[in-house]
């Protein structure tokens, strides 16, 4: 088994309250399923969509996020899966895909000696 992160990008800020409630229920259901499969290592956190970016040797500080709304990471989760293929398969039911967002699936590096 290996660990992966799911990085969620894109939020639909124009949905109606009714749609948002439905979307939220879908997320809860999806997390529940991941948990039942034993694949949820850490549910992670949603992130505020404001913050600061510290950059370069000059340590310049700018307001973030900087990219377009659809590219901003809105949250993350730690997943435990057999391999990348299974992790990807797990991500396919993520509700964010229904509102035009994306899930980035990234293996967490480990040191194999």
């Amino acid at each position: 088994m290996s660990d992966f992160t799911f990085l969620y990008r894109g939020r639909d800020t124009t949905a109606s309250p009714e749609q948002m409630q439905k979307t939220m229920e879908k997320w809860r259901l999806w997390f529940k399923e991941l948990g039942e499969k034993g694949c949820l290592k850490d549910i992670g956190h949603p992130l505020e969509n404001v913050g600061k970016v510290v950059q370069g040797k000059q340590k310049s500080i700018t307001d973030g996020p900087f990219a377009e709304a659809k590219d901003v990471v809105g949250g993350f989760t730690l997943i435990r899966a057999r391999d990348l293929d299974q992790a990807v398969e797990l991500s396919e039911n993520c509700p964010i895909l229904e509102v035009g967002g994306s899930v980035e699936v990234r293996p967490i590096q480990i040191l194999n000696m």
Partner: peptide
């Protein structure tokens, strides 16, 4: 303001429960 409150609720409640 209302829309913003619901965006927050959606994300927080999805991760942390209602």
């Amino acid at each position: 303001v209302v829309q913003d409150a619901f965006c927050r609720a959606l994300e927080l409640w999805a991760f942390r429960g209602v």
